[in-house]
Design a protein around this nucleic acid. Structure first.
Length: 349
DNA sequence: AATACGGGGAC
DNA sequence: GTCCCAGTATT
């Protein structure tokens, strides 16, 4: 059931949560600033990514790209290098584009209203609300997985969060609770509560400031919320690569931006047939992505001369790198691991 | 409305 | 193995 007008009891819940946050807020680097650029970077990094995983990437990223201008002027490859290992690489590409968008469309000044922030590449309703509320005190609930979980449990609400209307539904619910001041803190309070107390599994209800008000807690039904019916299944995908090297130099190429591992580097998938005589070894790697089970075959080709390496560069527009230069490129996780092992074996003899 | 898009962590 | 994470873009 959807609350139709402002409910004072709901507002009281919001204040209670805010008071809890004043004491229990996590000490995170992006909490000590209202610089919209840094808040933006943190929000993009933390999309579908836990704080523990994204924290070091955030620190490295804002140190190398401290403001919109440095990011806008950077090479895409370097932006991707700082994103290496984070996943969902379109986030990095969109971040780069959006920085240039701010230069060209917003005169270099970070947009200050929800509707304007929403125009940035890679910024959706959640992120725009987070930035607008934290940096500019706009009263917009930042509806994410934490909101769905906390609110559905608090009201024992079985609205299916995988339905299209869930965002709007929980936005209206959140607006009932959201204080008229400190909107950004309220959004962050829900995030902290969801991350540290109202966790997906084994929530710590005895620590929760809203336990006395929580309808799920009253019946011990925390595990039943939120309701999510959508199911995802992984599909199989086979990839075939040739690791072609002469001594410590090898061939790579850059992927397209319309499939997995957008704009990351990989090995060749085609070589002249007569090079197969130089095959040293062949290995199969199993690698699981969220929606794909990968089977990666890598044939190692040890060329007898440097000249042969050069011929393929012209023929296929591959790139030659040595081990040191390869560290300046962003590779998918399994290929990164392969290169590391190869390096290690080479150094051992 | 449905699907694609990574990698890590908890259980 | 399963599920989730400070979601967005595309179709």
């Amino acid at each position: 059931m959807k609350p139709k007008k402002q409910n004072p009891d709901f507002l009281y819940l919001g204040k209670k949560l805010l008071n809890w946050y004043r004491i229990n807020a996590r000490n995170l680097p992006w909490r000590s600033t209202r610089n919209p650029y840094k808040i933006w970077i943190s929000e993009i990094i933390l999309q579908q990514t836990q704080v523990k995983q994204g924290l070091q990437h955030y620190l490295n990223f804002v140190q190398r790209f401290p403001n919109v201008e440095t990011l806008a002027n950077a090479d895409t490859d370097e932006v991707l290098l700082y994103w290496k290992g984070l996943g969902y690489y379109s986030r990095a590409l969109n971040l780069h584009k959006a920085a240039q968008q701010i230069i060209t469309d917003f005169e270099g000044e970070f947009p200050q209203k929800y509707e304007e922030i929403l125009k940035l590449k890679g910024v959706g309703k959640y992120t725009a609300a987070a930035i607008a509320s934290i940096c500019y005190h706009e009263r917009k609930p930042a509806i994410d997985g934490n909101f769905y979980r906390v609110l559905s449990r608090l009201f024992a609400d079985d609205y299916d969060i995988s339905q299209a209307g869930a965002f709007q539904y929980f936005s209206e619910l959140a607006l009932q609770m959201m204080p008229y001041e400190a909107c950004g803190d309220f959004n962050q309070a829900i995030m902290d509560l969801g991350a540290e107390v109202c966790k997906p599994k084994q929530p710590l209800c005895q620590l929760c400031p809203l336990a006395a008000d929580c309808m799920a807690w009253q019946t011990g039904a925390m595990a039943q919320f939120p309701v999510k019916t959508k199911k995802v299944k992984a599909t199989d995908l086979a990839l075939q690569y040739y690791f072609v090297h002469f001594e410590n130099r090898f061939l790579i190429r850059q992927r397209a931006d319309d499939f997995i591992w957008k704009k990351l580097y990989e090995f060749p998938d085609a070589i002249p047939e007569d090079w197969l005589q130089f095959r040293q070894s062949s290995i199969v790697l199993k690698h699981k992505l969220t929606h794909k089970n990968l089977e990666i075959t890598i044939d190692t080709i040890a060329l007898p001369s440097e000249a042969l390496l050069e011929t393929l560069v012209k023929q296929y527009s591959y790139i030659i790198v040595d081990t040191e230069a390869s560290h300046q490129k962003s590779f998918p996780k399994p290929l990164e691991a392969f290169i590391q092992q190869w390096e290690q074996r080479k150094n051992e003899g």
